[in-house]
Amino acid sequence: MTDRTSLRFSTERFKAFADAVVAIAMTLLILPLLEAVSDAGTKGLATGEFFAENGGQLFSFALSFLLIANFWMEHHRQYTEVTAIT
């Protein structure tokens, strides 16, 4: 029987999993905005009125998107030199 601690695996699956988690998180961020745009279209709001009414939500989206994107980029930078995991 082999010792499980000596098994080494490629990092590609781990990186792909992290990419998938980030993609899902960013997708979930946009869903409330799509609903707000749909509601604004139903109400007949102009673009300026939409931005005025939903400024806080848009700022929260942008900040969250930037934080998640920063995490994702740092994760890739961190694992560029890693060739195998145990």
Rank of each mutant, 00 (worst) to 15 (best):
A16W: 03
T2K: 05
T5A: 03
W72Q: 07
L45Y: 00
A52H: 00
N70L: 15
Q57E: 15
F51W: 05
V21W: 10
M1R: 01
A36R: 07
P32T: 02
A36T: 15
H76F: 13
F17M: 07
R13S: 08
K15V: 10
D3K: 05
L66E: 09
S60I: 08
T83K: 04
V82D: 05
L34D: 12
G48L: 02
D19S: 11
A20R: 14
F61N: 07
F61H: 08
T11R: 09
I68H: 06
A84L: 04
T42M: 05
M26E: 14
S64P: 07
T27P: 13
D19R: 09
E12M: 04
M1D: 00
L58T: 12
L34S: 13
L34N: 14
W72I: 06
H76Q: 11
F71R: 11
A69M: 10
A62S: 12
R4A: 02
G56C: 01
V21T: 10
Y79M: 11
I68M: 06
Q78A: 02
F17L: 07
L45R: 03
T11A: 00
L31K: 06
L29F: 10
F17S: 10
A25V: 14
L29W: 03
F71N: 05
A84T: 08
L33W: 10
G41W: 02
S6P: 13
A84E: 10
M1W: 03
V82W: 00
S10N: 03
E49S: 02
A25Q: 02
D19N: 13
T42N: 09
A40K: 03
A18W: 09
D19M: 02
A69V: 08
V82Y: 01
L45C: 01
E49Q: 03
T86A: 02
S6N: 14
S38L: 14
N70V: 14
R8W: 08
S64R: 04
A46T: 07
F51V: 03
I24V: 11
F50N: 06
A23T: 13
A23S: 11
L66R: 11
L7I: 08
L63S: 06
R13E: 08
T11V: 10
K15N: 04
S64E: 14
S10K: 01
S38F: 13
S38Y: 14
A18S: 06
Y79C: 08
D3R: 03
G41A: 01
A46M: 00
W72D: 11
S60M: 05
G56V: 05
V22T: 09
Q57S: 09
I30M: 15
E35R: 15
L29C: 08
F9W: 04
S6Q: 13
V21P: 11
E74Y: 08
A62N: 12
I24G: 06
G41E: 01
L28T: 08
A46P: 00
I85C: 09
A20L: 05
R8M: 13
N54Y: 13
A40C: 03
A20Q: 13
A69L: 12
L63N: 08
T80F: 15
S64I: 04
E49I: 00
Q57H: 12
T11N: 00
A62I: 11
T2V: 05
S60F: 07
L63E: 05
V82K: 01
M73K: 11
E12D: 06
Q78K: 02
S60R: 13
N54C: 12
G44Q: 00
